[in-house]
Design a protein around this nucleic acid. Sequence first.
DNA 1: AACTTGCGCAACCGCCAGTCG
DNA 2: GCGACTGGCGGTTGCGCAAGT
Length: 256
Amino acid sequence: MGRSLCCDKVGIKKGPWTPEEDIVLVSYVQKHGPGNWRSVPVNTGLMRCSKSCRLRWTNYLRPGIKRGNFTPHEEGLIVHLQSMLGNKWAAIASYLPQRTDNDIKNYWNTHLKKKISKNQAEDVCHEPVLRYCNTDQIRNPDVSTPPMSNLSSTTYASSAENISRLLIGWTRSSGNQVVKVDQGSCHSVFNQGLPLQESSSEATFCGALTLPFHDDHENLRLEAEHQPLTVLENWLLDEAVAQADIPAGLCLDGMY
DNA sequence: AACTTGCGCAACCGCCAGTCG
DNA sequence: GCGACTGGCGGTTGCGCAAGT
C-alpha cells in the first residue's frame, strides 16, 4: 500500500483556481519567495496541496510569462529543440524563458506534432525549420518580441467581470485601502495587505506589481512590448487603467 | 436554434531524483 | 544505508468554447 498523495487528503480543493486564491498565492510568494511549497497552504490558508500551488505559480502566475500565439521563431525553435532533445519540455522551456514547459508541451501536442507529421507526409525533403549552431544563438535570436496587443487576455478561468467583483470585494473586505495615486498620467493602485511602495517613478500594488509613472503613454507602450505579463498582472493592470482612465498596454516591472 | 465535434489549455496524476534526519 | 518527504517533470485528462452541421 503506497503512501497517500498530498492531493488525496480530505478537504483539499481541486479544479480551477479562483482570483482570490491567485491573489493570496501571489502575495505570499512575493513576500516569501518561491519555494518551500509545503508551507504555502499552511501559512496562507489555501485549501490546495503544495503541488497545486507550485504548479499554479510556475505555469500561470510567475512574472514574465508570455501568453498568446507562438511566433514563427518560437515555433521553429521548439521544433528544432524537440528534434534534438526529445520531449524534454523543461529543457526546451529553458531556451524560451517567457514560455512555460506546460505551454510548450500543449503547443507541441496540439499544433506542431500534427503540422510536422503532415509536412513529413507531404515532403520528406523539406529544409529544417531552423538551423542554429549553438545555444548562444538560440538564446539570443535577432527577432523582436511581439507587441503586447498581440497577447491573449482571455485565458483566465473566469470572466473579467467576475474577477473584478471578486478581487475588489476581497480587497475591501480585507480592510485594506484602495489607494489612488495622482501623479502625472498616473494610476490607481490596489493595496492588498502588503505595503504600498511609492517613489517618484513607480508604485507597487498587491505587493506584486509595479507601475511606472510616466508622462507620455508612447514610452509606456514601448516598454510594454518588452515586458510580458501574466494574465493576473494583465487583469490588475486593466483594472488600474480603467480606474485611472489611461490607455491600456502599460508595462509592469517584474517581481524580482 | 439545437446539437455535435474538435480544439485549446489549465490542471491533475504518477513517477523519479534529490535531500534530510 | 534507509525511509520519509519534497520538488520537478512528462503524460494525460476534462472542461469550456467555437466552429460546423
